[in-house]
Design a protein around this nucleic acid. Structure first.
Length: 415
RNA sequence: GGACGGGUGGUCGAGUGGUUAAAGGCAGCGGACUGUAAAUCCGCCCUCGCAAGAGUACGUAGGUUCGAAUCCUACCCCGUCCA
């Protein structure tokens, strides 16, 4: 392991955030001498970020933790154009209003990971629409376009791949890398930003920005990428039954978020603890040595720490407690589970309840679940398709637990 | 603008007049084994219906036919090549 002068690079390296760097030594030097301002770009197509963005968010967090200044750059300008790589779907152009709402919502996520404010080390958020929207074509071409050669642009993997496969590459897409490079230079001009980070797939784009800075203004800019985070089984991280693992509570409950981390594969536990929690390395070292059933303890800690960062300690504790009751306590119904309420005295059809709760997408699916023995009411398999929930199923508080499969649980309650 | 190729279920991809709710793969879901893991095996996987069955569905809208994802027409969209 190389020896670093700066806390920033030492921490990044120890925790497994570093994949490639344009100039590790000089960046180390710079970070050891003063405050470095660094940024990562994020899409503004949805009102929440998801776990796939978390590696980047954590990099910004580490940057701030080690005494530097993070910028979250929102791609409001590029979002307006739309990602042209989508296939058959006609891309919907997003309205300014929508984009602004998304950005505001996403900011709520960042505030959990970064300290915002006006101080020298406080994080802030900018939108590249601020400068991309008003670009003049000719001045831009002369100022920026002149520094890019087509010869070189054609050598980029993203471009080469399309050409090799004889798939179309629009002029718009072709310009994307220039835009991104320009963002970097603009951020330097406005805020003295000298570092761009991102996933390893962004390497080419990042290098472009670094080079553009040098050519236009003889700037010394740096690029740093994280390894693409995949699970030990090779899958891209962040997909579950319900789709994307969103970071916003409104999109995915704390309990489900906690469960996502709880279900990490054994082989990933140590790596994820380093990347996605603030736990000291010594403790992680101890946790990742656990084997067999014991490693479940490490997974719970991972789940708790990750949820604490995203949703706060209180939500994390509630989620952990719910999980404990549901999986270990047998009887109880945690407060965090989805709940179905019905008037006392009525006997709702189980099938309907399952659909309403979202445990199954349709009545047909609910029935299949029952036929396969996957649906349980208070841990007893529901047998008939016409089963109802009656007074005798409810406990003293008027509640019963409904489970689909081994991991998905909900509460039904008479009110 | 011209020539050609194409649009099939969450996705990839078979299917070129009836035996097609549509092969197969992937993803997903349930079960077994376990540790709320991985791997493996079994089952499921459009909607409604207890069921028999019915309704939708192969880009969109019409048409031919006893019968269409399959043939015809128009339109929309995507791609390749040429201007």
């Amino acid at each position: 392991m190389p020896h670093f002068k700066s806390d920033f690079l030492r921490v990044m390296h120890e925790r497994g955030h570093v994949h490639q760097c344009t100039d590790l030594e000089s960046l180390d030097e710079k970070a050891s001498k003063g405050i470095v301002t660094g940024y990562i770009g994020f899409d503004a197509t949805a009102d929440s970020l998801h776990v796939g963005n978390l590696a980047g968010i954590m990099m910004l967090r580490r940057l701030q933790q080690t005494g530097h200044r993070p910028i979250a750059l929102m791609g409001g300008g590029t979002t307006k154009v739309g990602d042209p790589s989508g296939k058959t779907e006609t891309r919907q152009l997003m309205s300014d209003v929508q984009i602004a709402a998304n950005i505001a919502s996403i900011k709520g996520i960042f505030t959990n990971y970064l300290t915002f404010g006006g101080g020298a080390k406080d994080a802030f958020m900018v939108n590249n629409a601020d400068w991309l929207d008003t670009l003049g074509y000719i001045p831009f071409l002369r100022e920026v376009g002149a520094h890019f050669t087509i010869n070189r642009m054609l050598t980029f993997d993203s471009v080469k791949m399309r050409l090799d496969r004889e798939q179309p590459l629009t002029f718009l897409e072709f310009n994307y890398m220039i835009m991104q490079g320009y963002d970097f230079v603009e951020l330097h001009k406005r805020y003295g930003c000298a570092l761009q980070m991102g996933g390893s797939d962004q390497w080419g784009n990042i290098v472009n920005g670094v080079e553009l800075g040098r050519r236009m203004k003889d700037l010394e800019l740096f690029g740093l990428t994280t390894p693409l985070i995949t699970t030990a089984s090779g899958a891209k991280m962040g997909k579950t039954a319900a789709g994307a693992v969103w970071l916003k509570k409104e999109r995915l409950s704390s309990y489900d978020y906690w469960q996502f981390w709880r279900n990490t594969e054994d082989a990933d536990v140590g790596r994820f603890l380093k990347l996605f929690t603030d736990l000291p390395l010594e403790e992680i070292g101890r946790l990742e040595k656990l084997r067999d059933a014991e490693i479940n303890e490490a997974k719970k800690i991972l789940a708790f720490e990750a949820t604490k960062l995203a949703h706060g300690a209180e939500a994390a504790e509630a989620a952990a407690e719910t999980a404990r009751q549901v999986f270990e306590g047998g009887e109880g119904q945690g407060g965090d589970l989805p709940t179905y309420e019905f008037p006392r005295g009525t006997t709702p059809l189980v099938v309907d309840v399952v659909v309403t709760l979202g445990l199954a997408a349709s009545r047909g699916e609910a029935k299949r679940l029952i036929e396969q023995g996957g649906l349980r009411l208070n841990d007893a398999a529901v047998t008939g398709l016409t089963a109802t929930i009656g007074e005798s199923d409810l406990d003293a508080s008027g509640a019963a637990r409904l489970s689909a499969g081994k991991k998905r649980h909900a509460v039904v309650r008479a009110v």
